[in-house]
Nucleic acid binder design. Sequence first.
RNA 1: GGCCCGUUCGUCUAUCGGUUAGGACACCAGGUUUUCAACCUGGGAAGAGGGGUUCGACUCCCCUACGGGCUGCCA
Length: 471
Amino acid sequence: MSAPPASGQIVTRFAPSPTGYLHIGGARTALFNWLYARGRGGLFLLRIEDTDRERSTPEAEAAILRGLTWLGLDWDGEPISQFARKDRHAEVAREMLARGSAYKCFCSQEEIEAFREAARAEGRSTLFRSPWRDADPATHPDLPFVIRLKAPREGQTVIEDQVQGRVTFGNDQMDDMVCLRADGTPTYMLAVVVDDHDMGVTHVIRGDDHLTNAARQTQIYRAMDWDVPVWAHIPLIHGPDGKKLSKRHGAVGLQDYQAMGYPASAMRNYLCRLGWSHGDDEFFTDAQAKEWFDLPGIGRAPSRLDFKKLENLSGQHIAALADAALLPEIEAFLKASGKAPLTDRQRGLMTRGLYCLKDRAKTFPQLVEKAHFILADRPMVPDVDAEKALDTVSRGILRELTPHLQGASWTREGIEAAVAGVAAAHGLGLGKIAGPLRAALAGRTVTPSVFDMMLVLGREETLARLSDAAG
RNA sequence: GGCCCGUUCGUCUAUCGGUUAGGACACCAGGUUUUCAACCUGGGAAGAGGGGUUCGACUCCCCUACGGGCUGCCA
């Protein structure tokens, strides 16, 4: 464990269970924690909650770290394994015992379950009151026992939540939770508190499914006389239908979004804006997000995923990204979605052509589609629509255009003048001649501007394609 | 069952007692255009329901409805 942080420094953490992929909701929780810490010169720590040995796998942990890395969230220090800290958890349980704020309970699980069942059947409270709470240690039997928190029975436990406001729980609604199991392993409730305390976590930002847990955890902090962190319980993300997000909604894992071709910066922007707002700001940079993000700006109601809006933001980010940053992201997308990597020749053309590609695509698949004129090799095979644009008359015009292009200066102005000249000679508008040109150059009907394509391709390649198409 | 949280246009949200309830995405109509994307103009679209408090409630309080969470020796 690293040394406690300098006093006054903000420390947040993200604590996923390594039981699968990185959930989109978890990604947003991580983002909020990261933003909060990074915007205030604080630390953002990672803790892997791997105490469930049955379900935790190294593969899942790696997938989560990969997801965070793709999203661009960097963490401080090494990820901490909760399982590896089990001795410390047990030590704290024993200390609570010594302080008299916890006690040994010898009731068997069967006994407790039977009690709860009966209570439920009779409509009584299922809160379990252990008979060992105030027992004289001299009467302790030689049986397995758990360590339970000796929770206050009167008064209330108040959570000052930065999102939900002040939430009050009656102590008579909570029972003495188990902190250390009979086999000596810690429960989640204990482990979280001990780890957050030892890691110096000052702000706990997590899903609001933990809101009631916060009350229980507060009791453990009190029992150990530790400072309670600042709480911020954020609403969960729901599917487009308003139901809790599940696999039947399709994309629940962060990596699904990468494969769908959204740039990471767009995901950060969208996720950040989902459930949080800063006035009317919609499109913003990481620097602005770090500066603006704050807990009071978080809404209290769950929000739904809106792919249309994500796509819109994605388009804006693709257009705004510098070519040098965009190209690696496109290549990573190609890899993530199982497509062929770029050849050196393609990479070179992409570098030259990105300028006319990036403001016409909302996602990487759309961009790749429009980059077909770069990605495909001669001879271009026209698709059905492009084929229609290459009728006999059109081919004739293309043939006629060739010498004009041969003599043109290879600049946008030069090429435009050559094409406009031929069009005028036939009394045609640019639209009539652009169609066949597009078909010849790209074999598609949806492409960047024909002039841009010619510029990117160069004179030689352009003329070769025109010749291929003109026959 | 008990406890807790939530509810503004289709969606994300602004509003923090006084606004013609604003913006964005989406949608519809028109314009521009070399396809697509983009862009321009205009349009429809909201305070869950009922009680209070107040000169005045989307904003504060209560009830109901609906949605969600917790109620484990899971995390």
